[in-house]
Amino acid sequence: MELKIDGQVIASYPSQFTVTTMDLDDGDSTTRTADGTLTRDRVAVKRQIEMQWGVIKWSIMSALLQSMSGVFFDFTYPDPMTGQYETKTFYVGNRPAPVAVSKGGEILWSGLKVTLTER
């Protein structure tokens, strides 16, 4: 599997990688009638990608977070729906990074989790 951010191979591959295909509906024109029938106006199909890492060195943590620090960035990933690698523009949400341990003067982090949402 190959993952790239702005054309550069990601600093460390995640231990968990999930691609969700999302339908976005128009909030005003998508409604339900009194009998429960849905009238739907899908405006876009987008991807959301969740990644999580196990124990990683501080320098790797920093490189990962810095690579996703832009407001938007291009991300290349294997897309389960298209059956090929895709490059799309994403943004990243919250990035919790729990600390694991300090070992031999080096801090190791565990459990970094990011959610990328297609623009």
Rank of each mutant, 00 (worst) to 15 (best):
V114M: 03
V99F: 03
E50C: 04
L3N: 07
V19I: 07
M22T: 15
P14M: 04
P78G: 03
I49F: 01
R40S: 13
R32N: 15
V101S: 12
F72R: 12
P96L: 03
R47G: 05
V55F: 04
P78C: 00
K113V: 04
E106V: 15
R47Y: 05
V99K: 07
G111H: 13
D6H: 14
Q8D: 14
T115L: 00
S110L: 11
F73D: 03
W109M: 13
G7S: 13
Y77V: 04
G7L: 09
A100Q: 11
S110M: 13
I49G: 04
V55W: 12
F75L: 14
G104Y: 09
V92G: 01
I5R: 05
L38Q: 06
F17Q: 08
R32K: 15
I60M: 00
I107G: 01
P80A: 00
L108C: 08
K46M: 08
G54P: 05
F73C: 03
V114G: 02
A97T: 08
V101Q: 13
S62L: 08
T20C: 01
D74W: 09
V92F: 01
A11R: 11
G93N: 12
T89W: 03
R32E: 15
A63W: 09
I107T: 14
S110D: 12
I107D: 05
Y13H: 11
Q84S: 10
P96A: 05
S12P: 00
V99W: 07
I107N: 10
T82A: 06
K113I: 02
R47P: 00
T87W: 12
T115W: 02
I10D: 10
G54S: 15
S110G: 13
I49L: 06
Q66W: 01
N94Y: 00
F90I: 00
M81F: 01
A97L: 04
M22H: 07
Q66F: 05
L24F: 11
S29D: 10
I49P: 09
G70A: 10
